[in-house]
C-alpha cells in the first residue's frame, strides 16, 4: 500500500493515515487477515510520533476495519472487503463523471448533497 500525507494540510496526520489505510483496505491493496506494519515501525519510517500512528489505528479499529491486539499488532478484518460492492459502484460513478467531464470537486459535492 502507498499512503500520501500532506504535512501542510488542515486535516490531521492521523486522519490522513487512517484514510489512506482505509482506502487500501477497500481497494484490496491490503488483504483481509494481513498484518499492518507495527505502529512503531510505521512511525519510524514516516518520521512521525508513534501516538499519531496509534491514533490512526484506533480510528480504524473503531470502524471495524482492523483488529488491534496487544502483541499481535494491527490485522485487517474482512469488514473492508464488504465494501467491494461500494467500490465497484464508485468506479461506475467516476467513469460516468469522466465521460461528462465533471470535475472531482463537483462530483464530491454531488455525493455530499445526496447524503443530506
Amino acid at each position: 500500500m502507498l499512503l500520501r500525507i500532506d504535512a501542510a494540510s488542515d486535516v490531521p496526520i492521523f486522519d490522513q493515515l487512517a484514510a489512506g489505510i482505509r482506502t487500501s483496505a477497500i481497494s484490496g491493496a491490503v488483504a483481509p487477515g494481513e498484518r499492518l506494519p507495527s505502529a512503531k515501525e510505521l512511525a519510524r519510517t514516516l518520521d512521525v510520533n508513534v501516538h499519531t500512528v496509534l491514533h490512526a489505528y484506533q480510528v480504524l479499529r473503531d470502524e471495524g476495519i482492523i483488529d488491534l491486539r496487544p502483541g499481535r499488532g494491527a490485522t485487517v478484518t474482512d469488514r473492508a472487503s464488504e465494501y467491494a460492492k461500494l467500490n465497484a459502484a464508485i468506479n461506475v460513478v467516476v467513469t460516468e463523471a469522466r465521460e461528462l467531464d465533471i470535475h472531482p470537486a463537483a462530483l464530491t459535492a454531488l455525493i455530499r448533497e445526496a447524503y443530506q
Binding site: 502507498l2 500520501r4 500525507i5 500532506d6 494540510s9 498484518r35 506494519p37 510505521l42 519510517t45 514516516l46
Partner: peptide, 19 residues
C-alpha cells in the same frame, strides 16, 4: 509538504516499509 510511505508484506511473515 507531501510525504509518502509504502508498505508491503512478503511471504506473509515479512514486511518491507519505505518512508
Amino acid at each position: 509538504d507531501e510525504i509518502a510511505v509504502w508498505s508491503q508484506r512478503v511471504r506473509g511473515l515479512w514486511r518491507v516499509t519505505a518512508g
